[in-house]
């Protein structure tokens, strides 16, 4: 089953105004930067973007925010983006902030066919407002609903023509769960190899979750906080 497409232009076909997208990554680590560049080029707008973070002002999802292509963000932490904060506080951007673990599990649940689950995270806070509360083992929990998307766009280190994916280090983060939760999942990879070249024992995302795969033209892989020690 060959799922290879030529480039980001091909892979992003069918993404339209008003759609819900999931985008993998934590901070700028493991984000699908080639696809984001293509979304900017396409100019699609009124997007709902589900992504742990919103990039920085001039990279990652910050690029879509600058062009006002995003109507609503569903995230857990957006502290590194001044334009985000400005649009949110002025009311231009709708924002749903979700505890990070709940966000991850909601994506996983969406891909796994579990419509909702109870978690203790957020009980007694504004996150719990309007949500069903139930006690288990003497402790209150809140009901969180699964998330799915029209398109999930993930970034992997290596992928094969069947769409099997392997991530590198902490660039894995939200990518595997989001890959599961997209009606159409696009994977951009640094290395694209023929089926059979990857060790089946080491694959993180089975190709069944991936509909389109392509090798990214260019990965800047920008570092957000460069911290080093002296030799």
């Amino acid at each position: 089953m060959n799922k290879v497409v030529a480039n980001a232009e091909e892979s992003c076909k069918g993404i339209e105004d008003g759609m819900t997208l999931m985008l993998g990554g934590f901070g700028l680590c493991g984000i699908p930067e080639n696809s984001i560049a293509q979304l900017v080029k396409l100019g699609v707008k009124d997007l709902t973007c589900i992504s742990n973070n919103a990039g920085v002002d001039d990279f990652g999802l910050g690029l879509l925010l600058q062009k006002k292509q995003i109507r609503k963000m569903v995230s857990s932490y957006v502290g590194e983006n001044d334009e985000f904060e400005r649009q949110m506080l002025s009311g231009e951007l709708e924002v749903d902030l979700i505890p990070q673990g709940s966000l991850a599990e909601r994506c996983r649940a969406g891909g796994a066919g579990i419509p909702a689950f109870f978690t203790p995270a957020g009980f007694g806070t504004e996150v719990a407002e309007g949500k069903e509360i139930r006690e288990f083992n003497g402790k209150p929990h809140i009901l969180e609903m699964a998330l799915t998307a029209d398109f999930a766009i993930v970034k992997a280190w290596k992928g094969d023509t069947e769409g099997n994916l392997i991530y590198n280090a902490t660039a894995r983060n939200f990518n595997p769960m989001m890959a599961m939760a997209g009606k159409i999942t696009i994977a951009e990879v640094e290395e694209l190899v023929p089926a059979g070249s990857l060790d089946p024992n080491e694959i993180h995302t089975p190709g069944i979750f991936v509909q389109r795969i392509f090798k990214g033209d260019h990965f800047e892989k920008r570092i957000e906080q460069r911290t080093v020690r002296q030799k």
Binding site: M88, L89, V95, L97, P99, Q100, T125, V127
Partner: peptide, 12 residues
């Protein structure tokens, strides 16, 4: 408004 990140999951 920075968001809670993983803090709510951790403290809960």
């Amino acid at each position: 408004v920075k968001g809670m990140g993983g803090a709510m999951d951790l403290v809960a």
